[in-house]
Design a binder for these strands. Structure first.
Lengths: 118, 118
DNA sequence: CGGCATCCCATTTGATACTG
DNA sequence: CAGTATCAAATGGGATGCCG
């Protein structure tokens, strides 16, 4: 599109909320991490990693840091040896659960459709 | 994580529906395209492009093709000159609107929180 | 008007090794 | 146990030009 072309009236705000929200929970692992934290309520770093098939520690740490910075997950450090760190959803993070839950149901239904070649 | 490590019992199916759904509507533009098609009901290629600030024709075409292949949008070609192509949501695509709507409201609220430095 | 093709850059993700 | 650091690979995305 030409940059100087007049834009249409847009039904959403100039800083698009749909875009904003997708950016905040997008990426390869964020959806599943939020969902698992909802299912288990609280998870340690290692257990969360083992729940996500094939994720590397780099991506796990990186993703958790982003979610923490975005105030979607809490990080609680226990100063013991060996170290213990627990992750859980913040109140804002919990607000996303209805959405993810609905999305999961839709995904299940679609996967089922696919299996039956409908 | 080690690949041969025993996995935990997972609350969702082996092919994770959350992951599946995110893949199907993820990406930089899919959320907004689905939302705009819902708002306008039907949009021509050019108008859709002008509604998405700075998207290139490459990405617009590519994204629409993916959505079409995934049966989330319809593509209707009018064999006239100049060409005319209209896009709209399929029934499956429409099923996604309730939670994109939810996500949009969440995004609006969060953006408002940010503006007020809460 | 509604694309497609090509080339190139940026961001994301992965593999591997190491540490307090 | 819960991470860091470094490097490499894969993927995604943008600019530009051409076409039926």
């Amino acid at each position: 599109m030409k940059k100087d072309e007049k834009k249409l009236e847009c039904p959403v705000e100039h800083t698009c909320a749909v875009d904003y929200a997708f950016k905040r929970i997008g990426g390869k692992y964020k959806g599943r991490i939020l969902w698992y934290l909802h299912e288990f309520t609280v998870l340690r770093y290692g257990k969360l990693g083992r729940t996500l098939p094939d994720i590397t520690t780099k991506m796990l740490t990186q993703t958790l840091r982003e979610l923490e910075t975005d105030n979607l997950v809490n990080r609680k450090v226990y100063h013991v040896v060996p170290p213990k760190v627990e992750y859980s959803l913040t109140e804002i993070g919990k607000e996303l659960i209805p959405f993810i839950s609905y999305l999961k149901e839709w995904g299940d239904k679609e996967l089922e459709r696919g299996k039956n070649n409908i």
